[in-house]
Amino acid sequence: MLHLTCPNCGQMVDETDLHAGGQAHITRHGAGASDADFEDYLFMRKNPKGVHFERWRHVYGCGKWFHAARCTTTLQVFGTYSAQTLTPPKPLITKIKKLRPEWEGFEK
């Protein structure tokens, strides 16, 4: 079971209260972008075994989006943070590096 703390309402919520929004911090290439960029944006996603940054929506609760960092194999949650950011917060990245020294770091 995956439990995340929604940063918008402060509640610890179960996965079944949430809606998964896929990989976080994607650059949205739209009109005027190159075909390669647009293809990347539409189809190409990371599928790491380990640290992953994701978007989640607290759909049965406050209805707001947020970001979460977790491990895809152990379900360890490193932290959740506001949806209104383009990159994970620095303190969170530092924390993950301490917990997972082998992690290659955040890449867009």
């Binding site: 309402c9 509640q11 610890m12 919520v13 179960d14 079944t16 209260d17 049965y60 609760g61 406050c62």
Partner: peptide, 19 residues
């Protein structure tokens, strides 16, 4: 509901939106 309903976790007049 998946909410922890123990009195310590969910006190009086705490609104919980869930399923």
């Amino acid at each position: 509901t998946p909410v922890d309903l123990s009195p310590d976790a969910l006190g009086l007049n705490v609104v919980r939106r869930t399923r």
